[in-house]
Amino acid sequence: MSDMDEMDDGSGIVKKFMFLNRKAPHGTVYALEGLEVVLITAAFDQDVSMVFTDDGVYQLMKGIDTKGIEVKDFSKTYRALEGYDIEKLYVDQVSLDARGLTEDDLIVDVTVLSNDEMANLMAEQDVVISF
């Protein structure tokens, strides 16, 4: 770990990376895998945005209790992102509305974007990685 953390590739190029999360948390492994990739790549000092649309907004639900299905509750891990300097979390308003959710239902502080704002944010990225 330490080797990677202190690695400096010397290029100094910072790209805009978007991690786009569109899947509900437990039905598939995408949400957990996506979160792990974000935590690992946080060491590379890029301009990272984490975006939640469609069923991906369900990843951030408060009050998750996974004891009954015997899987890890990784919803708490989203709260660690700040410590990894991943501070740009965006949630799609349209997706919240379609699921009867509001910002208050979410476990972390996020910026909620309108359809047009989300479209523009996506369009300006150098790299979009989907989960």
């Binding site: 770990m1 330490s2 953390d5 060491a43 890890k72 509750d73 708490k76 660690a80 410590g83 990894y84």
Partner: peptide, 15 residues
């Protein structure tokens, strides 16, 4: 216990 992960060393150092 709080975050359900073991932190990367740079995150641990800062915390």
């Amino acid at each position: 216990a709080e975050y359900q992960i073991a932190p990367a060393v740079r995150v641990l150092t800062k915390a």
